[in-house]
Nucleic acid binder design. Structure first.
Length: 848
RNA sequence: GGGCGGUUAGCUCAGUUGGUAGAGCACCGGCUUUACACGCCGGCUGUCACAGGUUCGAGUCCUGUACCGCCCACCA
């Protein structure tokens, strides 16, 4: 045993991380059978971003559970992953190195980026681009790992994965190809939500609404020859050339007579039908809307259901494309005028085209009055800067809609913590409107492992997709050559082309359960870890990550990917807003860990219960640090001096241990239900009472003032209690508890068995009033201390006598521990009597 | 517009099945007490968001309202 003279928290993180690593404390033993394993599907943080205090909150929550399960005897499977896939990384690499990806270029093995990013971006091949992504993310990952270790995550760092790694790509591609083979993934040319800056399709799950200024424009459409006009209102007049019909509600008396007739569009003279559809809202605008291909999702619905033609003007880059009026599809009553008008719009962005067309409509007299400014919600890609357009393109989809009921059922079988989070999942699944678009027109991501034959006329045969053998995965169709072809045939007539797209980041993230459990890769690990036990994650990505993971496991494995989902909240700043970079209120996690100690920060995190948004509060971290400090000091006291082992004969000692046994049961129950916050609160309050009341009460007895047997009872009881309390606190104060454990025990506390009631009690003790005695110690001490405080006496002042009056039960209980109570309050004599509660203190006669 | 969560002391939060409102922080006062001044002891602090209802009794159950947060829908 070696108890330091002056215990300190400083340096514990480095000291214990080094030992945990060298002793492999958190190493996963793959030979353990499934029922002895607890497997966690850790969220891989996006490495090109930076870690913030919100990550610290939720990752700590997971670690609390991991440590608890490990001490329960489970072999915890707890790998860390990095999400280095996707747009954020790509954007960062482009700026950092000054490069641009051109998938048509061949790989250049000798390419090295210039020391300084050049003025004009250098075009490089996709493999070269990906190499740079890997290079940059490797550095980020090092910094992340350092932070996680410092925080004390009990991760098995030998099992780390990266979403863009070879093995991970292989799984992602293999799962995709199996879906293709089963007809569950398909490609389709269809209107898709499109970001004009990233020039890629995006999924429903990646949308967000933003309030934007806009304006209603009231515009006249001419009825048949001289019959007047109809006014519609639109926020997007620039789409008038893309107008294919007008629509009103079938019951709208104002427009009923017009259904089936035609009107002509202003400026362009295109003849479009007036149609009826229930989705048209008589209350909105003038009650009649123009349908464009495509202004919004409702347009898509109308277009599909009313079987309208396509007249697309917005191009993938967000500008209006070239159109020749008077040609098929672009019929006009006055092609020359239409062309004249349109030529002034072509090449402009939607926004500039809008300004221009308003001018033109004003001149032509088709605009009624001035545009009415409004503020309305517009759909954006969550990472984008301009409103989404809807553009027709060829994309890959995974079937979801036909599995709605089964997915809802999976959601019901999943155990949610907290329970009410299930509603968000159901909400989302019930609101799905289409299959999941998984292709993105980007470069850094998992490529679609598919080639297409090029016909003799140079056109591409998308229907005849060429797929590789599973054994050859992962492949990159932009550089790898399909079987039976030569590299020279790439892009040539009669040859092939690779699918240029990559998978959506969620398409890869959704298979983290299969990735980490080594599906189709290591059958032993897979069999011992899948389906997993826990998916920890934040509530904002239930609709994305959680949902898509459930879908993929449902389709591939016919099961849930995990039994439990633990949803953590956000960190709120003092104004109760979600903390975010844009608000400039992000603090660096490493700085916090250094200032308050990892255990202090872990304490703060642990107080935020499952699913609860938690205020950022350094005050709580200070309290956590104080708790850790107290633990060091009280442990030093408990372990100091002679360590006589003996029978626990004293009432107070027995009562304390009985209460402790109860604490163990309650705490265990709460942790089993993932309620680490409540469990902590319980242990913490027991611990402080233990220090301030029990330890104070038995101090003099422990020093031997009442004989060796009574002393041995105290020191045995307090050491047993310390052992139990340390283990109850070990998941929270991972470093401090390990430090204290090392003073007098062998092995890591994090592999020590979780305490049981029997550990506290030793042999089963019958309660003959001991528990009540311990329970009343606090109130007894409090009453006497108050009486002394009223006399302006210090707690340590010796007094001649104390007469204590209280209710029957209280006095009876205190009589059992009279001697300890008397010592604790330093009274020469103590009389306990039933009566009106009061305490009389007699001072010692003044000396001399 | 729909769904979910929240509203308790100045602050951060607990409040189990209805039974006299709690903790910590902050604040005020006291204390060399041989584990700890990163400490100890004591004290002050509440229309439990609001309005109804059920009940002998409501912070807790029911109905409604307001505000905050999140998710979804709407987007002409």
């Amino acid at each position: 045993m070696s108890v330091p003279e002056k215990p300190a928290l400083e340096g514990l993180e480095q000291k214990w991380n080094a030992r945990w690593e060298s002793q492999g404390i958190y190493r996963f033993d793959r030979s353990r059978p499934r029922d002895q394993v607890y497997a966690i599907d850790t969220p891989p943080p996006t490495v090109s971003g930076s870690l913030h205090v919100g990550h610290v909150l939720s990752y700590t929550h997971t670690d609390l559970i991991a440590r608890f399960q490990r001490m329960l005897g489970k072999e915890v499977f707890y790998p860390m992953g990095w999400d280095d896939n996707g747009l954020p990384t790509e954007r960062r690499v482009q700026n950092y190195f000054g490069v641009r990806c051109d998938p048509s270029l061949p790989y250049d093995a000798s390419f090295t980026p210039p020391a300084q990013p050049p003025k004009h971006a250098i075009s490089i091949s996709r493999p070269n681009f990906i190499e740079l992504c890997a290079k940059l993310t490797a550095e980020d990952e090092k910094a992340f790992e350092h932070l996680w270790r410092y925080l004390g995550l009990s991760v098995d760092w030998s099992m780390t994965y990266a979403t863009i790694g070879k093995r991970e790509q292989r799984i992602s591609q293999m799962m995709f190809l199996r879906l293709v083979r089963r007809g569950l993934a398909y490609q389709l040319e269809a209107p898709t939500l499109w970001d004009v800056d990233f020039k890629t399709a995006v999924a429903q799950a990646e949308l967000e609404d933003r309030e934007q200024p806009g304006a209603y424009h009231r515009i006249h459409f001419a009825k048949a020859a001289g019959a007047g006009s109809i006014a519609i209102e639109t926020t997007r007049p620039e789409l008038i050339p893309a107008c294919v019909a007008l629509v009103a509600h079938p019951d709208d008396e104002r427009y009923k007579p017009l259904f089936g007739s035609h009107v002509t569009t202003p400026l362009f003279g295109a003849r479009v039908p007036v149609m009826a559809h229930a989705l048209a809202d008589p209350e909105k605008g003038s009650g009649i809307a123009m349908i464009c291909t495509f202004g919004d999702i409702t347009d898509v619905t109308w277009w599909r259901e009313l079987k309208l033609p396509v007249r697309a003007v917005v191009q993938p880059n967000g500008t209006l494309g070239p159109v020749t009026w008077g040609t098929p599809g672009w019929e006009s009553e006055d092609p020359v005028r239409a062309q004249q008008a349109y030529d002034q719009l072509a090449g402009l962005s939607a926004k500039k085209a809008q300004a221009k067309i308003v001018e033109l409509l004003r001149e032509s007299g088709d605009l009624a009055g001035d545009p009415k400014p409004i503020t309305h919600a517009v759909k954006f890609y969550e990472k984008g800067d301009r409103p989404l357009e809807i553009i027709t393109s060829r994309q890959w989809f995974i079937k979801t809609i036909e599995f709605r009921e089964q997915l809802l059922d999976r959601g019901r079988r999943l155990q949610w913590h907290p329970e009410y989070m299930r509603a968000r999942y159901e909400n989302w699944v019930n609101g799905l409107t289409g299959d999941w678009c998984i292709s993105r027109q980007r470069f850094f991501g998992v490529p679609f492992p598919v080639w297409y034959p090029v016909r003799a006329d140079g056109s591409i045969d998308y229907g005849g997709a060429i797929v590789p053998d599973e054994a050859s995965l992962p492949i990159d169709p932009s550089t790898d050559v399909p079987p039976g072809y030569t590299a020279a045939q790439r892009g040539a007539a009669g040859g092939f082309v690779g699918d240029p797209d990559v998978m959506d980041t969620w398409a890869t993230s959704s298979v983290t359960p299969q990735i980490v459990t080594r599906w189709e890769n290591d059958s032993e690990v897979f069999a011992h870890t899948f389906p997993m036990d826990l998916r920890p994650q934040a509530h904002d990505i239930i609709r994305t990550w959680l949902f898509s993971s459930v879908l993929r496991a449902h389709l591939e494995n016919g099961s849930l990917p995990w039994a439990h989902a633990a949803i953590s909240g956000f960190v709120l700043d003092p104004d109760r807003k979600k903390m975010s970079k844009s608000k400039g209120n992000v603090v660096t996690p490493l700085g916090l860990l250094q200032e308050y100690g990892s255990d202090g920060v872990r304490y703060w995190a642990a107080r935020g219960g499952p699913g609860v948004d938690t205020a950022f509060d350094v005050g709580q971290m200070k309290i956590g640090r104080k708790l850790a400090m107290k633990l060091l000091n009280v442990s030093k006291f408990v372990l100091a001096g002679e360590q006589a082992d003996g029978e626990i004969t004293e009432t107070l000692d027995r009562g304390m241990l009985m209460s402790l046994a109860e604490l163990v049961d309650e705490t265990t129950r709460e942790l089993e239900q993932y309620d680490y916050a409540k469990a902590l609160q319980r242990v913490e309050s027991f611990f402080w009472a233990f220090c301030d009341n029990y330890i104070e009460a038995v101090k003099s007895r422990r020093y031997g003032d009442h004989g060796p047997e009574a002393a041995a009872s105290a020191s045995t009881a307090m050491r047993r209690a310390l052992s139990v309390l340390l283990r109850l606190l070990a998941p929270y104060l991972a470093f401090t508890c390990e430090e204290v454990w090392s003073w007098w025990q062998t092995g890591s506390i994090h592999r020590a068995p979780w305490p049981t009631a029997a550990d506290a009690l030793g042999t089963t003790l019958d309660d003959t009033g001991e528990r009540a005695a311990y329970g009343n110690l606090a109130v007894g001490l409090e009453n006497i201390r108050k009486a002394k405080a009223d006399l302006k006496l210090s707690v340590g002042t010796e007094v001649q006598a104390v007469r204590y009056f209280g209710p029957h039960g209280e006095v009876e209980a205190l009589r059992h521990i009279e001697r300890d109570l008397k010592s604790a309050v330093r009274a020469g004599s103590l009389r306990l009597e039933v009566g009106e509660p009061s305490v009389a203190v007699t001072l010692k006669p003044a000396e001399g």
